[in-house]
Design a binder for these strands. Structure first.
Length: 511
DNA sequence: AAAAAAG
């Protein structure tokens, strides 16, 4: 299916060379997105040059719609399906479609954004950020500039999307008004908590209060009817609890002026999430005029079509699917003769070698297979922990905290952690089973695949992905994934060779 | 199949 980004517009796209700080990472540096303090000074210079160019393109005004293609080396927009070579997949290009006449300039520094002194202090002192990453530079002006248009923003995994909407929420609420003014909806409790931690840290000096709307653990559960109404300015949570609080008049929507959906494609398209999400939007919009922000690394064509209708008249930032897989992340496939061989590969090859290079997440497709694999690895004398949604909330928290503290090295997970989980020490992802769409056997779930592998290589760090394949069906799924993202996934052969796995890790820059 | 909700 052709990407309609370029030819959708009546006006020609403006193409500018962009930074080298996309997912393409200079081989020796640790970070590529440049919004954390970086040891490498020359990368700094390159990025600064690129930002200049972004500004030029952003201020070009074309009567009704401005199409800005933040591409790299092509002077003209690549004609759909042709023109763009596969080998410049590393060149990240973000296509911006702005609505209305508001001109936006890319933010070269955080000072450009007119943030409060307290917020800037949080950014520099607490977060230790230096300057906006690419997605931050482009999206923050769109979020913060009146008339506060809605925004759909797609950007690579680990590129700093959280900072975009957290800054958006923190800078738009009034700390003197004791009522919820910003709401962020997330697909999992873990992601809600993680976003909350980031917000608390960034907003440390602002005096803004925030509350997590997720189900409490069994030990300290308070029925909704018994809890006081929310007075915190920011609420971050999962759909069920948010909906429940609203229903019981504990979460007022009258003052809410910014509504964020993290992992928005999932929240708005997936059965079970979709209805809740739409109801939340509806409830808020009937009470107040509200800015809606949709963030995700993935928006497939169908979802994109739908979400652009949800946020009519909003600004849009999109990335082509061929350019979404992170360049610093090396993907491999391993043909295993049978299911048992998969366990042996994990234990005897990947973990044995991988232990020294960082943390590992192993993705499985069901709670049951998580338990089975857990047991098998433990029996082989390997220490692993497992997280899945059927655990008690207290146990989920404990497993996550231990992993974040580095007390555990290997974590088995269902797709609970596929999206958003940000642990920089993870540089190995193993797909014990490849993700397939619900109710199909062999139709790959491309979005879940991309999110899973994005748990490694955070902020442009190096990482390796091992896809374990054992029959023809899985082989075909893998082939489709390679084709979809236009990536070569190298095979590790022979499957049981220690040398072959060593070479793979070396190629990924981990050994 | 997973996730979210004391529905």
């Amino acid at each position: 299916m052709a990407d309609s980004t370029n030819d959708a517009s009546p006006t020609p796209a403006v193409t500018v060379p962009a930074s080298e700080t996309g997912p393409a990472v200079p081989k020796e540096t640790k970070f590529s997105w440049g919004d954390v303090v970086d040891e490498s000074p020359n990368e700094e210079v390159k990025e600064a040059e690129a930002e200049e160019l972004n500004i030029k393109s952003l201020t070009i005004d074309e009567s009704k719609k401005k199409i800005n293609d933040f591409a790299d080396d092509s002077e003209e927009p690549a004609p759909d399906g042709s023109g763009r070579r596969l080998d410049d997949a590393e060149d990240s290009s973000i296509t911006a479609v702005t609505s209305g006449d508001t001109p936006y300039s890319s933010a070269k520094t955080f000072e450009d954004l007119n943030l409060s002194a307290e917020l800037l202090k949080g950014i520099y002192v607490e977060m230790k950020f230096q300057k906006p990453s690419k997605i931050q530079a482009i999206s923050l002006p769109m979020i913060l500039t009146p008339p506060h248009k809605d925004l759909i923003a797609q950007a690579h995994n680990g590129s700093g999307k959280t900072t975009c909407f957290v800054l958006g929420m923190l800078s738009r609420v009034d700390p003197n008004l004791r009522a919820p003014q910003a709401l962020c909806v997330c697909p999992t409790r873990e992601l809600a908590i993680q976003n909350m931690v980031v917000l608390q840290k960034m907003g440390k000096y602002t005096g803004i209060l925030a509350e997590c709307a997720i189900p409490m653990g069994t030990s300290n559960h308070v029925p909704v009817s018994k809890r006081p109404p929310v007075t915190a300015q920011v609420v971050i949570g999962t759909p069920g609890t948010i909906k429940n609080w609203m229903l019981h008049k504990k979460l007022g929507s009258g003052q809410i002026k910014i509504l964020v959906f993290d992992e928005a494609d999932h929240m708005l398209a997936e059965d079970g999430f979709r209805d809740d999400s739409l109801r939340i939007i509806k409830d808020i919009e009937k009470n107040s005029r509200c800015q809606v922000l949709l963030f995700s690394a993935t928006f497939n064509d169908a979802v994109r079509n739908f979400v652009t209708r949800v946020t009519k008249d909003g600004n849009q930032l999109f990335v082509k699917k061929e350019e979404l897989s992170l360049e610093a992340l090396k993907q491999f496939k391993v043909h295993c003769p049978d299911e048992l061989a998969k366990v042996n590969v994990i234990k005897g090859r990947i973990l044995e070698l991988g232990e020294s290079v960082g943390q590992t997440i192993i993705f499985v497709h069901s709670r049951h297979s998580a338990a089975t694999l857990h047991k098998a690895l433990v029996e082989l004398g390997y220490e692993v922990t497992t997280i899945q949604g059927a655990l008690r909330q207290e146990d989920r928290n404990k497993i996550i905290q231990e992993f974040q503290a580095g007390l555990t090295q290997v974590l088995i997970s269902t797709d609970l952690l596929a999206r958003g989980f940000d642990q920089q020490q993870v540089n190995l992802v193993i797909n014990y089973t490849l993700p397939v769409k619900y109710n199909t056997r062999s139709e790959p779930d491309y979005e879940v695949y991309l999110h899973r592998i994005g748990r490694a290589g955070r902020f442009g760090r190096k990482g390796a992905v091992f896809n374990l394949i054992c029959d023809n069906r899985e082989h075909e799924i893998m082939a489709k994934i390679e084709q979809h993202f236009a990536v070569q996934v190298k095979e590790v052969v022979p499957w049981d060779s220690e040398e072959a796995f060593k070479d793979a890790l070396k190629e990924a820059g981990l050994l």
